[in-house]
Nucleic acid binder design. Structure first.
Lengths: 224, 224
DNA sequence: ACGCCGTCTCTGGTATGCCACAGGACGTTA
DNA sequence: TAACGTCCTGTGGCATACCAGAGACGGCGT
């Protein structure tokens, strides 16, 4: 099973369209507030309007686009308030994941987290921000998967999609000293997880997310 | 064409179908695992397959039905594991809501919670389980709304739909003594919120959800 | 009597055409 | 010139037709 949550695992045209649209939106290839014409996309993908429609429908319930009947379909941009709310949720879910993972004891994900930290240390050492950003992604991902709660994972992925998180990580890590500090915080969390101290792991993880939010918001251009 | 307005925003056919289907699934009118033929539903609603399809699509991303391509669409029943996971999420979100509400200070929702408790006390006194069940719903709802976090609210509602929670509440309250105990726990939570003690409010709320989960699971027939 | 295999039906997937409505362009009028 | 009303274009909503795959079912061979 892949980590991608697409419709029903089918390899249909529609699944392809959904995946590609989601990628574009999250990566920022598609500027927000422009009109995503069903017709134009259908032609671009070489399919009819139907699968595009269905893709829009699903992306709408995921919160990535907004369909305004008889007006158009638009990429949504989270408002500042929504970004705050999303981070609140992120803090919540990742904190819980840390706690749950700690309760599970020695599981493969924990080993992989420690491996991740070793690589992250090296990346920080040599100032390789790009690589470190990747590792941060993986770190949070491992944590969530390690919680062994599929619902939590699903909701988490929805949130991250709405935040277009990958872009934000790069932004926040561009602050001098932030990668090193972030790495430190990751270490503390993993230590507490390994020590099976769920309460503290959750608390520290939440603090980490808050710190990360500060780092992001500081760099964030004001939404329109 | 009928001009009937439904509660949820636009009065499109599709919105009507979604609302009605969701209602049926949550209320249990539709037995799980039966085949929901697009065609049959379309005829019943007097519309074409298109809006029914789109409704299915949305309900699938909400986790209420499963579309198996070229086989059929089925009402999903959460497995025991999923129920556990859903309760874990419920605990998380309601705990967080309690904390957030406590941080907000004196807001209208808090007054309404206290009013809710007064009515709940009365219902428990006279053993009116049905009314108490309604009030429990309202209690949790007020808590979530009072958190003033739309994302949290949205994710919470998705969860509750998947759990078909209204039915569960009634089930768990049928245990002797459970309503009274539940009412007690609600009181403690509201007291802590009023005292602006977010940490404790979260902790107690989470304990309450765990207790409630026990009460539900004890009564739950084993899913096939 | 049993098992295999072909066919046949029903399903959702896709393409397409028509429609009503939103909203802007543009001409008209005070 | 500015405000207003009309028309025109583009959009998504909906209906319909056709297609391919999944499974059930029955006939046929053993």
């Amino acid at each position: 099973m892949s980590q991608v949550m697409d419709g029903a695992g089918n390899g249909s045209i529609q699944a392809r369209v959904i995946a590609e649209m989601r990628r574009r939106i999250i990566s920022g290839d598609l500027p927000p507030d422009v009109n995503l014409s069903e017709l134009a996309l259908a032609e671009e993908f070489g399919v009819s309007r139907t699968p595009v429609r269905e893709a829009f429908k699903q992306l709408q319930t995921e919160g990535l686009v907004e369909i305004r009947p008889r007006v158009g379909t638009f990429v949504t941009t989270p408002s500042r308030r929504e970004i705050t709310e999303l981070f609140e949720m992120k803090e919540l879910l990742e904190g819980a994941a840390a706690r749950l993972l700690a309760q599970r004891g020695r599981v493969p994900e924990l080993d992989r987290l420690e491996e991740n930290l070793r690589e992250a240390d090296a990346a920080v050492q040599r100032d390789d921000t790009a690589r470190y950003a990747e590792l941060v992604q993986e770190f949070h991902d491992l944590l969530i998967v390690g919680s062994d709660n599929r619902k939590l994972e699903a909701h988490y992925r929805t949130l991250m999609n709405q935040l277009a998180y990958p872009r934000l990580v790069t932004t926040s890590l561009s602050q001098p000293g932030r990668p090193a500090q972030s790495d430190q915080e990751h270490h503390r969390v993993v230590e507490l997880i390994a020590a099976k101290d769920g309460d503290s792991a959750e608390r520290v993880m939440r603090e980490h997310v808050r710190a990360s939010r500060q780092a992001v918001l500081a760099r964030l251009p004001l939404p329109r």
